[in-house]
């Protein structure tokens, strides 16, 4: 019974990080409607920002984290303003935006590699520094628990904001139909800018969490993003709670798969799940 508990805990931990990724992704995708490859890189950049402040400059932990989240948000905001907005104004197709975002991903990865080298780095300060909790025979560390709680808090906050605030309603309106939203008087340009800031900031949290949990390298942004995509589709694109549900489901399936089959098929399993959902339930488990 021990193993099953541990597998379940493993899934919780992985799911928490995927949740953060998908929360940001869903937000960005529902308003801008294109597949933004740069998002993955911005998330990792957030993690590296914390590396810079916390480890290289020696600032205090929580200040570094807040700075890191903020920087990820600003980075996303600027990129949206400088690159994606002009393209959308010119009615560029989503394929073009995709390629532009590929350019963004490539540039950010290269910059991170130049500034921080390609070597693998963790944000934590050595092994065994974190307290471990024993739960029914399985183990989870303090850091992992914090990540889990953070993911749930962000999900709740975002859900509430989107449902009950004016801002949230405006975002939903834009997600439904941008043109109509602007006719009704919503300044969609400004809104999208803010959305990109928030979405990228959440992505930054995912990057920071990854930095603490499994470590950072400049090139891991793309696979992080792809996991977020799967979670979004499985759970329901555009639905905040759906995304998180999808994230945990994905984590459970991956870990179950690793347990029952061979570890090496982990990627294939995740993407088979994606294809299955696309075929049979493309709107996801919790539709908008």
């Amino acid at each position: 019974m021990d193993i099953a508990i541990q597998i379940a805990l493993n899934a919780l931990i992985a799911g928490a990080i995927y949740s953060l990724v998908v929360l940001g992704f869903n937000l960005l995708y529902s308003t801008s409607r294109f597949f933004d490859l740069g998002y993955g890189a911005i998330a990792i950049a957030g993690g590296y920002a914390v590396l810079y402040f916390y480890k290289l400059l020696g600032l205090e932990l929580w200040s570094s984290i807040i700075l890191g989240i903020f920087i990820a948000g600003i980075l996303g905001f600027c990129i949206e303003k400088i690159i994606y907005r002009p393209l959308r104004t010119r009615k560029a197709s989503s394929a073009v935006l995709l390629i532009a975002s590929l350019g963004v991903l490539t540039v950010i990865q290269a910059v991170l590699a130049i500034l921080f080298t390609s070597q693998f780095q963790t944000l934590g300060r050595g092994a065994g520094e974190s307290r471990t909790f024993e739960i029914f025979g399985g183990a989870i560390t303090q850091t992992q628990s914090i990540i889990l709680i953070t993911a749930l808090v962000v999900m709740t906050a975002l859900g509430l904001v989107l449902k009950y605030t004016l801002f949230g309603k405006a975002v939903k309106a834009i997600a439904d139909d941008e043109e109509v939203a602007s006719i009704v008087g919503i300044n969609s340009e400004r809104m999208i800018g803010i959305v990109f800031f928030i979405g990228s900031a959440i992505g930054g949290m995912a990057g920071i969490a990854t930095g603490f949990d499994t470590g950072l390298q400049p090139t891991i942004g793309l696979s992080l993003l792809l996991k977020g995509v799967i979670a979004a589709i499985v759970g329901g694109i555009g639905n905040v709670y759906g995304g998180v549900l999808g994230a945990f489901l994905l984590a459970i399936i991956e870990n179950l798969g690793a347990w029952q089959f061979s570890g090496e098929w982990k990627d294939a399993i995740a993407f088979i799940v994606l294809v299955v959902f696309l075929l049979f339930r493309p709107q996801g488990i919790l539709p908008k």
Binding site: I83, A100, V104, T106, V107, Q109, I114
Partner: peptide, 18 residues
């Protein structure tokens, strides 16, 4: 730098010739 320049070029090309 080569990757950076390449990524940059992609972005520019998309901006100027969508």
């Amino acid at each position: 730098m080569r990757m950076l320049a390449y990524g940059f070029a992609l972005v520019l090309l998309m901006l100027y010739r969508p």
